[in-house]
């Protein structure tokens, strides 16, 4: 295990994320998929009641702020150019809506449900994610 890795924090944070998704499933009967909920919250998608989606989306930064307040500064580094960040956001927006989900909906909720769609989707975005970083690094566009 490299010394920069955070297996313990990763596991604890992961358990929190999974519990959050479990609250959404058993409480509101919905998948805690961030891309779907975010689109719904701003009126660019169907599905969950809008107030539920909005409350969930607003909770995300509030939860992060709470941790920063209780535990101290949270690292959030953005060394890439703003242009690359915007292109990345645009592609993520299009891709997650076409693919009906992202790391939370497909990766956490769908995989744990053994959903074929979600397993295929997760393997696909993992593969293109690995490939993208490898290619970008190879051509010297990494950050």
């Amino acid at each position: 295990m490299p010394d920069y890795a955070m297996p313990v924090q990763g596991l604890i944070g992961g358990l929190m994320i999974g519990t959050a998704a479990a609250i959404m499933l058993l409480g509101a009967g919905r998948i805690a998929g961030v891309s779907g909920m975010a689109a719904r919250a701003i009126g660019l998608g169907g599905g969950a009641p809008r107030t539920l989606a909005l409350a969930f989306i607003i909770g995300l930064p509030l939860g992060a702020a709470l941790v920063a307040w209780l535990a101290g500064p949270i690292l959030s580094r953005f060394p890439m150019s703003m242009a690359m960040l915007a292109v990345a956001g645009l592609i993520v927006g299009i891709g997650t809506r076409l693919g009906s989900g992202c790391t939370s909906g497909h990766g956490v909720c769908g995989m744990s449900r053994l959903s074929k769609r979600s397993i295929v989707a997760t393997c696909t975005f993992m593969a293109t994610g690995f490939a993208t970083v490898a290619i970008v690094n190879a051509v010297g566009g990494g950050w």
Binding site: I12, G13, M16, A20, A21, G27, A32, L52, A55, L62
Partner: peptide, 20 residues
């Protein structure tokens, strides 16, 4: 439902922060 959504979002966001 709104309370459930907020609770889920809060814990989700906190988990993302804790895990780096």
């Amino acid at each position: 439902r709104t309370v459930i959504g907020l609770a889920s979002g809060l814990l989700f966001g906190a988990g993302l922060a804790v895990s780096g």
